[in-house]
Amino acid sequence: MRSVKNHFSLVIALLSILFSMQVFLIAERSIEAYKVNLAQNYSVIAVSKKQLEIDEILEINNIISDAKELSPDSVIERLSSDMRSANVELLKLTMPKFYKLSLTHYPTPDEVKNLKSDLLKSSSIKKVEDFSHTHDTTYKLLLLFKNVVTLFAIVVLIVTILLIIKELRIWQYKHNERMSIMGLFGAALWLRSAVLFRLAIVDALIAGFLAFGIFVYLSSSPWVLEQFDTIGINIVIFNQVDDFLLILGVAMSISILLASLIVLGHKEEV
């Protein structure tokens, strides 16, 4: 019971930090995945008075990943009912060429503006439709979500620092006396600090494995998976190797930092 109590406070503090950090990572991944989705569905239409080579278009701006010429057939079909076939062929030759440009990523409003301006610099391109209104609305929504996540991360960071300071005070109180007594009997610094570092490492391991268990459970939970399916995002919620190593690394770093601060701040009782 005494031993459980010794570990409880730091494990809970570490666990809350690790949980918040992983939630932040999941939110970041979701935003990135959503941006990829948006990029796949977003394209710019360029209208040229003459036929352009695809490579020629790709060179205009490096954000363009692909360009496809749109077939004018559907437009001509609507106009051709009252026309003779010779006129239809003539119309086909004189009609401007439409290109659908796919982009490497979901662009910022500035990138859209630059792209439009670069395209219009080409003597052949006469008009560009960038669907800026729809793009701006979506981009602002994404930006808002990203800002909320960043704000959440800052709050978590502040709470983390407060938790660490609180733990530091508790640990200083708990360990100072023992370290002083050990010092009175000639224990070297490493021996006086050994209990502290052992406790810190054990607590980091406990918190790391608890966080691992929680996220393995959550990442396979049907309810969680359903939520991601609903918004059409397919991401790795918890990578059992990379994320676990990150969690363990963060927990170890915080614990060891905490123990080091106590050792450095230790003043022997006189």
Binding site: E177, M182, L184, G186, A188
Partner: peptide
């Protein structure tokens, strides 16, 4: 380090015992 060496050869008894409570 010299002080630690010395203290390893001394036994100290305090009025308030100075035992590690945990």
């Amino acid at each position: 380090s010299r002080l630690n060496f010395l203290r390893r050869h001394i036994g100290i008894v305090f009025q308030d015992y100075k035992l590690v409570k945990e």
